[in-house]
Nucleic acid binder design. Structure first.
Length: 818
RNA sequence: GCCGGGAUGGCGGAAUAGGCAGACGCGCUGGACUUAAAAUCCAGUUCUCGCAAGGGAGUGAGGGUUCGAUUCCCUCUCCCGGCACCA
């Protein structure tokens, strides 16, 4: 009688039992075993429940963690909640409930779903960024940053979302729109806490060499930081005492500089408008242009880029080119950004596309100072002739004949020697705007005293808990709703005991997720962020599994905070993560990103209700490479379901019948499966492992249970256990073994009488496979040649032809060239 | 535009220190079981010529290195992800 796999019964049987004991607990400071810290990015517990993307990446992590346990490692595989954030706040506003309560509900249901999916998290280490016992440390980190001069308050234009009524970091503005709600953002001046991440720019680059991140992740980080050597050149302005300082990375082309362009924000523009610098140009016109530019949003500016139109206005004043002594007209334009370099650029229209377009537009002089590979020395009249990236200098005095990179170095030294300018290193990376004007975040633990200025809260007063407020909406002024809480806001200065006010801004989402992996090491510690001896055992994270979308910012911010904590001797390693593994994305069955509006969202709960957790897990691991983009395919799910059912039935039906000795062929086959799976698992090639298990099942069915020994089948159950933990546990117990299969070691290949003495060797004629011959592994090349020549199927391909060459790659292939 | 990744049957994908292309799954075709369907099981399934034996073509396009290239090199096309008037 065939036993049918009843996943509900099996899952219910084991689900809770696993968490009653210490099965998945990581043991601190276990010197007897090697440790492995496997981390998956903790989720934001949204109200809509676990997403299939979560199920996918967590399954990947879980398979790895289980495999590593079987390899004898002491595995730390924790889970927690990145629970601060706008969706919960917005939901709370909508249904008029406390975000704390909503969060509690969401995390409870997430945890239950995760247990149902069989994830082997060590729940004794669960953390929650919204727990005051957790954010106490997030706040302390901020205070430390402030004390080290790495956090400062500054009024500066920020991106403002009129809908969310919140200031956004540059990174949160996507194409001029709010990342969350899509509303067009504008600029607004607000006093913000800024964190000086740029102070760590070099170390963020250098530290990468101590990690095993894949190239694309390292590249993303380095490109984002984008360290370059610049030179700031100061030019005198004709007929005044004023100067203008431009910033450039390409001084080599300076002989070709014919104009200067200023950003609308440039101080010189202000002086001009106020009449402090004389000009014959129409001041009204200049003012009009400047105002229009400053009012423009990033989006509008970008639109103009795609249209390729350059705009600008002439100031009427000139700077003198040191090299050519020629006057260069100074213009104002919107394509120069105030926040980049010095906000002033020297225009070299021959060798910069933007400068060329600008010069064309306004009839400015275009000089050629670089010749490209094509040798074209003619006047530059077309965009295509503009040599930007490579070439050799001409018309450039002492630089003539030099290659541009060499010329750049020479010119930088020359300019410095002449006292015209100074070399400086700049980064694309900007300081980090750390303030949010919302309720559901960590309060920034700072107090503004009328006398003492900004002072941090006393450490003994931490955590500064979020007070319960009536309304969670941001205030009309754009301040956080905390600003309305007079009794909370008004406090006394920790230094002078005078009247003072609390900061009402809260921290950005990143704050809690920057250091959570440290807390997992020692989540209940009341005295310290995490005990140093426990840290030195567990850190760094060995394998960090996460999405590509976090490869730049999350990784950068979190590495920065970690490096800072290392300097403060609060953590034990200079880098937080050793290996970074990116998981792929699962698209809807329509091959498009899952979204509610498209109605193509797959929820893991629906899948597990139909086919059970094991099948869902195995399916997710099977549909494609772990790091690629895949589409959900319901019918492929059936294939995996079939496989799991077959395994179950095969073992269950024969559980009492497996003999001591099976066929050596079976052992031999399983040994190969073992070695293949082990290697593939180490490389996260899950899809090929599942495929190999399917192949194994096909093989077992073919040979029949009477050829399979008990040891064989136990080995197979052990190997599939990381993928299908419920079925494996059930079958393990059916086979009469003690609980639990998940506490077992990965099987060792077994001895078998089979040694491959003979093999089928493929034979190529002129590089094309034409047949095969059976050979013994002792065969000599001479014997083989004879064998091939006498083979009826093969020799007709070279009958009457001359064998020019006979190539035998031992154990692989033969190629006959005729 | 820049950086990164990719392109293999009807589909998802296997196979790269250069060596049997298409593992495994889906789908499809035929068969068994069934009153029937589903489920399950068996056989087949890159395209193409051929009744067959067998032949020809074939890993985005073109070229190169090699006895031999999906794999290495050069040129190009398209797709995906990220960044972008960064001077």
């Amino acid at each position: 009688m065939k036993k049918i796999f009843d996943f509900k019964k099996v899952e219910e049987k084991w689900r809770d039992k696993w968490f009653e004991g210490d099965l998945y607990k990581a043991v601190d400071n276990d010197k007897g075993r090697k440790k492995k810290y496997v981390l998956v990015e903790f989720p934001y517990p949204s109200g809509s429940g676990l997403h299939v993307g979560h199920a996918f990446s967590f399954t990947g992590g879980d398979v790895y963690a289980r495999f590593m346990r079987m390899q004898g490692y002491n595995v730390l595989f924790p889970m927690g909640w990145d629970a601060f954030g706008l969706p919960t706040e917005n939901y709370a506003i909508k249904v008029k409930r406390k975000p704390q309560d909503v969060t509690k509900e969401n995390t409870d249901s997430f945890r239950e779903e995760m247990k149902s999916l069989g994830f082997s998290f060590d729940w004794s280490r669960e953390v929650n960024t919204t727990d005051p016992n957790y954010y106490k440390w997030t706040q302390l980190i901020f205070i430390k940053l402030f004390e080290q001069g790495l956090a400062y308050k500054e009024e500066r234009p920020i991106n403002w979302c009129p809908s969310c009524k919140i200031g956004l970091a540059d990174e949160e503005v996507v194409n001029g729109n709010c990342e969350r709600c899509g509303t067009k953002t504008s600029k607004r001046n607000i006093s913000q806490w800024i964190v000086k991440i740029t102070a760590y720019a070099d170390r963020l680059i250098d530290g990468l060499k101590d990690t095993a991140f894949i190239e694309k992740v390292k590249a993303a980080q380095i490109n984002w930081i984008d360290k370059k050597e610049w030179i700031d050149i100061t030019y005198p302005i004709q007929g005044t005492d004023e100067t203008v300082t431009v910033a450039t990375t390409r001084p080599d082309t300076n002989f070709g500089a014919t104009f200067i362009v200023l950003a609308a924000e440039h101080p010189l523009v202000g002086k001009l408008i106020k009449g402090k610098i004389k000009t014959n140009q129409d001041l009204d016109e200049i003012q009009k242009y400047v105002k229009a530019t400053l009012d423009k949003s990033e989006l509008e500016r970008q639109k103009e880029v795609s249209e390729g139109e350059k705009t600008g206005v002439f100031t009427g004043i000139y700077a003198i080119n040191h090299l050519t002594k020629k006057p260069m007209p100074i213009w104002i334009t919107d394509f120069v950004l105030g926040s980049v370099g010095t906000g002033a650029v020297v225009g070299v229209p021959g060798h910069d596309i933007r400068d060329f377009e600008f010069a064309k537009q306004f009839g400015l002089e275009i000089l050629r100072v670089v010749v490209g590979k094509d040798g074209d020395q003619s006047e530059i009249t077309d965009k295509k002739q503009v040599q930007e990236e490579s070439g050799v200098m001409i018309n450039s005095g002492f630089l003539d004949g030099k290659e541009i990179n060499e010329a750049t170095k020479l010119m930088m030294d020359y300019i410095e020697k002449q006292g015209w300018g100074t070399k400086t290193v700049r980064y694309h990376l900007r300081d980090w705007i750390f303030s949010r004007q919302h309720y559901w975040g960590e309060p920034i633990p700072m107090i503004k005293c009328e006398k003492c200025g900004w002072v941090p809260v006393k450490k003994s007063d931490l955590p500064i808990k979020l007070p319960e407020v009536e309304r969670y909406e941001p205030t009309e002024t754009g301040e956080s709703p905390l600003a309305n809480m007079q009794e909370w806001v008004n406090t006394i200065c920790p230094v002078c005991k005078g009247p003072a006010k609390r900061e009402t801004d809260t921290m950005p989402n990143w704050a809690g997720s920057d250091w959570y992996f440290v807390r997992y090491v020692d989540p209940l510690n009341k005295e310290f962020i995490a005990d140093l001896s426990k840290q030195s055992y567990w850190l760094p994270v060995d394998t960090y599994i996460g999405g590509d979308e976090h490869n730049t910012l999350h990784l950068l911010y979190s590495r920065f905070i970690h490096q800072f904590l290392y300097d403060q001797k609060a953590v034990t390693t200079p880098e937080p993560y050793y290996q970074r593994v990116s998981h792929g994305v699962i698209l809807g069955s329509d091959n498009r990103r899952m979204s509610k509006t498209r109605g193509n969202v797959i929820v893991p709960g629906d899948v597990t209700a139909k086919v059970g957790s094991d099948v869902a897990r195995a399916y997710l691991m099977f549909i494609g490479p772990f790091d690629s983009t895949m589409a959900w395919n319901e019918s492929a799910l059936n294939g995996v379901k079939r496989f799991v059912s077959r395994v179950y039935s095969f073992v269950a039906d024969n559980s009492k019948k497996f003999k001591e000795d099976g066929s050596p062929e079976v052992t031999h086959f399983l040994n190969k499966v073992n070695i293949f799976s082990k290697t593939a698992l180490e490389r996260f090639q899950y899809n090929t492992v599942v495929a190999k298990f399917m192949e194994t099942m096909n093989f077992l069915d073919k040979v029949g249970a009477d050829q399979v020994s008990k040891a064989n089948i136990e080995d197979f159950v052990l190997m599939i256990a990381p993928f299908v933990p419920f079925v494996a546990e059930e079958l393990w117990s059916m086979l009469g073994n003690e609980y639990s299969v998940h506490a077992q070691k990965w099987p060792t290949p077994r001895k078998t009488s089979i040694v491959e003495h003979s093999m089928e060797l493929p034979v190529q004629i002129n590089g094309k496979v034409r047949g095969r011959v059976t050979i013994s592994d002792q065969i000599s090349e001479f014997e083989l040649k004879k064998l091939v020549e006498e083979d009826v199927l093969l020799n007709r391909h070279f009958e009457g032809k001359l064998i020019k060459k006979f190539i035998y790659v031992k154990g692989k292939i033969v190629n006959v060239v005729v």
